[in-house]
Amino acid sequence: MSTSTGHRNPGPDRSDSVENPLSKLQVYNDICEFEDTLGKLVASVDRFNPDLELARALIEADKQLYKSLECLPKYDEIDTRAKTLDEEHRDTDEKTIRILETLTECGSDLNALPMLEQVEFERETMLKQREKVFTDVLLDYAMKLAKFTHVPPTFDKGTVGPNNFVWPAEDAMRRGMLAIASLRASEGANAQEQQASSEQKTSEKSSENEEAQTDIRSPDTKEEPVARRPSFGFDGSGAKDHESEKADDDIDLDLDLFNSEEF
């Protein structure tokens, strides 16, 4: 009967120091309390000194223990819900991983493709290059066409006048060239007069013989101004007109830059 002295301090007290996290568990604590109280009651009874307080405490511990055990169905339901949620979280995480992998693959594929701006820029550059027509090609083609075509009969030539040209009008160019020619002619006339005065001194002796010849040539030389174009009249001597005519011949070659009849 008295062999129960070793059970005064039952298991829970010894294990609490080692399994400290278990002290947080209500059921575990209730079991320990019940076990402890039971041990004390058994010890008191075996000493023939039963303690009623220990009996009441044991009944309270029993109630508390089974009150905790009544929560087991709740814990079971919680466990089921938690497992379901864990499974959903796991599925969601796996889905997230798959989506991220797919997005990463798509991103790498997109990075491998050329940029849209670059493609558009290259296409625009190519189109601009195609739109360009080189001048020599255009001129060759125009010259080919010009051999076999003419101004359309319905084309109104009055609509295209010198005022619409980007270059000066023909008469303006002619006037300019004639003005330059007149300047050259005046310089040439002065030089010729100086040369003539020097030659005059050397040829005074033979002038009489040559006068007959000049009288014969004079009608020809006097006819040349008559044959000149009457449209360009200058206020000057006959020699001046003669020089201007020479310059005018040179200028005429340059004035054939534009044929207004072609328009």
Partner: peptide, 18 residues
Amino acid sequence: KSHIAESEECRALLSKTP
């Protein structure tokens, strides 16, 4: 008590109140 101490799942479940 030993079952509760050994079962990690049980400890995790009972460590919180409902």
